[in-house]
Design a protein around this nucleic acid. Structure first.
Lengths: 346, 346
DNA sequence: TTGTACGCGTTATCAT
DNA sequence: ATGATAACGCGTACAA
């Protein structure tokens, strides 16, 4: 482990450590000649400063961390790209960190904030249900982006950028009703899901009621098997296969994610039926696949790009003390594909 | 920033810092009573140890880092899960770090190795073309998993787990030829791609030749527009649209990734043609979507799970000094879907 | 412009 | 079992 340190470089160059430090950090008070010489020696010996030591000493760092729960979610792909470019445009560095399924994101955030001297944090995905007390531990500016938040948490304790899952889910369901569908199945998250799954389910039910349809509990479907990743294609596939086997009648399926909608289509095709002729299928999120699937899938497109930009804008407004907390709700767009069609009584 | 430190906790508890340190790190030489008391105070004051200081002082850490280039690639989803569980099964911790598109992964690896006292590293994706000299800088055990490696690098300088992209690509092309297709288009990576794209293209050409078909340059398609992400659905879609417009005749398309195959299908459907009736379409990778797409897509399924397990096995064998370097090539499986069919002269 | 010396928060060593 | 203290590698105030 005889790693080379700043002292070694200083010795080789016949200068003091502070001079080397100045060279590394582009400090102004240094002779150009000695600087270039030092940099050359650094290259030669492949010296790499120890980040732990730097972070320990440094008082600040101009880095923004994005903490993401569910890194496998393709919905986050574009969002991350926008985050990255927006953050780098502001001359900050961008740190992506995965949050494990049952990990406490606040604990992780506090830890990282200390370790990396973070300037700000974006929480992406997941579900916030922490106590106020816990939230207060996090002294670094942060914004919740496209995730769920418990209604119990007072909005004054956090900032957020989201869509109204209840409203958008209502919108989709209402669209299906207006197409003439009366027996609409929903592929939902497991019952214990307290997050967006619950909100989307609620919007679904309310839309049915407002269209004079009594929600049929047998058409509210979800998986109990928790080895199956929620929102995945397989989840939608298995749930739909099961639904078809029950023999319960329905004319449309609304899956609360596009991936699940794709799985649902597969199950329908496998049973020898067609989309949208036999069953209409709708999704949610506006993933690329909803466009490229055949038939293209009717979905709710979240304006991911604008939302990401707004997230960063708010974060920096907080950092710059222009605002304290801010909440922004975006309207999502009903994108009508080929997977849904009018229902006509046969 | 008056963050609470180990000294503060020691003071509150009326003990020395070393005792607190022992409590935190489950050191054996400590009285259970004092330990529980200390832990209680820690909870009370929400003390969180500073990771930078810990890493600085610690001599080792039992963590494995996975450095991933192209985190948006859905092919990595399952792989990461296997990595995580395999690593945790061995009581090591798992650190996921993204490598930016044009970032040097070796530099990053050396940096992280120092900072986090890494025990081992897995490189996932990307393309290795570094100089031997550079490779030697990395003193920590590492394995290259499912990425490309320049043929110029002597195998004795690294370990790897991959499929033979040339061979598998040959396999797929040969299959299409045996179905009777003679005019086969390939959706390939941009010409400057030196990695797996090149190998897959080479296998394609050789298979044609071995089937007595002269490769038609007009049927080797790729995008020049580098804003388009290679291997993406959009890439496949745009390239196929363009191909259809040229009027060049063909009966099958082989896209060197499943995502591009999906895009190709979309373009074909949009033009009023059908898969596989008018055109056969084949992909590569064996992503979930190849199964769930309609029609399901004929593909080459890489045994991602076994490959991931093997990657970790080799890595730990190196760590435990059982081997020095090791290379393992897996056979991939031709999965025949509904997107390809026999070609019969009309 | 440059060098010396201290301290960041923690763990490891050595006493006690 | 516990406490004092050195050291990890670096940045920076201060002196030169």
């Amino acid at each position: 482990m005889e790693s080379i340190t700043i002292k070694d470089i200083a010795k080789k160059c016949g200068v003091g450590v502070s001079t080397v430090s100045r060279a590394i950090n582009n400090h102004p008070d240094i002779n150009e000649e000695t600087k270039t010489k030092i940099m050359q020696v650094i290259k030669e010996y492949n010296y790499i400063p120890n980040n732990s030591a730097r972070n320990l000493k440094r008082t600040e760092s101009n880095t923004i961390a994005v903490l993401i729960k569910g890194i496998t979610n393709p919905f986050f792909n574009n969002i991350l790209k926008v985050f990255e470019s927006e953050i780098q445009d502001r001359k900050y560095s961008f740190l992506l960190h995965r949050v494990e399924e049952h990990e406490d994101e606040i604990d992780l955030a506090v830890l990282l904030a200390k370790e990396k001297r973070l300037k700000g944090i974006v929480f992406l995905g997941g579900y916030f249900y922490h106590s106020i007390e816990k939230l207060k531990q996090l002294k670094v500016p942060f914004v919740l982006s496209t995730g769920g938040v418990s209604e119990k948490i007072d909005q004054k304790y956090y900032s957020s950028v989201m869509v109204d899952d209840y409203k958008e889910s209502y919108k989709m369901t209402d669209y299906l009703c207006k197409l003439g569908h009366k027996k609409i199945a929903i592929i939902s998250a497991p019952v214990d899901d307290e997050s967006i799954g619950k909100l989307r389910l609620r919007g679904f039910k309310q839309a049915l009621i407002d269209n004079n349809i009594t929600p049929n509990p047998n058409l509210v479907r979800y998986q109990v098997d928790d080895t199956l990743e929620t929102f995945s294609m397989k989840y939608g596939y298995e749930v739909t296969k099961e639904l078809l086997q029950t023999g319960e009648e329905f004319t449309a399926i609304y899956a609360i994610s596009d991936s699940m909608a794709v799985g649902a289509c597969k199950a329908i095709f496998e049973s020898g039926k067609k989309v949208p002729d036999d069953y209409s299928v709708a999704g949610f999120d506006g993933l690329d696949i909803s466009f490229y699937y055949h038939p293209s899938i009717t979905t709710i497109r979240q304006p991911a790009e604008e939302m990401s930009q707004e997230t960063i804008r708010i974060l920096f407004d907080i950092i710059d003390n222009k605002v304290n907390k801010e909440h922004k709700t975006f309207d999502a767009e009903l994108v009508i594909g080929q997977s849904t069609k009018e229902y006509k009584r046969k």
